[in-house]
Design a protein around this nucleic acid. Structure first.
Lengths: 197, 197
DNA sequence: TTTGGTATACTGACTAGTGAATATACACAA
DNA sequence: TTGTGTATATTCACTAGTCAGTATACCAAA
């Protein structure tokens, strides 16, 4: 029985994260991950019962870092809820200009595994996206926005739309456009007495 | 030199379309496509110079049918631009409830090939998405909406966000939510004298 | 007799996963 | 302190099958 917090296990997940994100699930072999982690395939299979398990572990490891990043962008932005929401998109557009950027690992994995809806990695992705939506709804609620849940969902749809369309057009202008749309939606649900700060 | 309109070629593309959409690019072998088309792999390679070429042909064949479907939904809907836009989402949600539905083939292919940004299939996808955005902007313009291009882009982002998030949550409520968001954005750009029909 | 199209059969590389042996570390008894 | 047992962790070599793409040959029609 391998330990859950083993440093070897961490090394494997780190290697898998880099390769899966860069190339996609199907294009990365277990051999390649083992080599990148500096150990043999047999050792990898001692710590994970299958490649599918490793894919789920990869996404599980991205849950908290991703949420923290987004929350950081939101918190750091000046202005009202509309500005803070738009800041998420501005920062996303900046990140997307980096040559190693390949979209959202959760969405790309779900797209690649679309024919296996019950796959453990997709469940991890679903939980992550729900966590983000819930966090955002809470922040919007704190800012006194009307219908924070419905609004959070619409913003999530614009974010994930940005991720997807970027992989098609490779043009960050789409992310900026999504940010303006999101800000419009926030203002549409902000009491008309204070639409800007 | 194979003919561009050969019936054999069409049979191959039809088989590829079914398999690629159902399983994804990487999970479908050229052998499987040849078998489904009822011919040998050598014949397939007479008509297409590589698997990548066949992937591009698959998406190219989906361009017009997809546009026609969306335009049909838009045209058939009663009411103003907000209602017509929302109808696209309502119909999309209905389609997404079908068990064989697996999202948008263009986006799924782009996600799977994210590490090969110049892939011919991604260029085909980019052209298709641009075609749709341009068509939608034209319709919105015809309906007297302000800033039809910016609005069309925001709606496209909500549509593609719907496609993506559906593959994660498998819950069509998200598509309906996107439709309500899109309608809100249309109304925000409709002269305040007539916000509904 | 040439040309377009099809078939059989093959190549070399790669795939996920496994069998069997071994190294390491620590607990406990003599 | 020394020896022995046991669980954890790791390696090498392998299986059985799949992959995209091709060499060669055939056949029918122009």
């Amino acid at each position: 029985m391998p330990e859950a917090q083993s440093p070897t296990r961490k090394r494997i997940v780190d290697a898998a994260t880099r390769l899966f994100y860069a190339e996609g699930i199907g294009r990365v072999s277990v051999d390649a991950i083992a080599e990148k982690a500096g150990l043999t395939k047999r050792t990898l299979y001692y710590h994970f019962k299958s490649k599918d398990d490793l894919v789920a572990a990869y996404l599980d490891g991205r849950d908290q870092p991703n949420l923290t990043l987004m929350a950081g962008w939101f918190d750091a932005a000046e202005g009202g809820a509309d500005r803070k929401v738009e800041a998420i998109f501005t920062n996303l557009a900046r990140a997307a200009r980096h040559p190693k950027w390949k979209g959202c690992g959760f969405l790309r994995t779900a797209a690649e595994l679309a024919s296996m809806p019950g796959h453990p990695a997709i469940k991890v992705g679903s939980r992550h996206k729900s966590n983000f939506e819930t966090w955002l709804a809470g922040e919007l609620s704190n800012h006194g926005v009307e219908e924070p849940q419905a609004l959070a969902r619409e913003i999530v749809l614009l974010i994930d739309g940005s991720f997807s369309i970027m992989l098609i057009h490779r043009n960050p202008d789409y992310i900026e456009a999504a940010g303006r749309g999101a800000a419009t939606l926030v203002r549409a649900r902000t009491s008309s007495t204070r639409s800007r700060t």
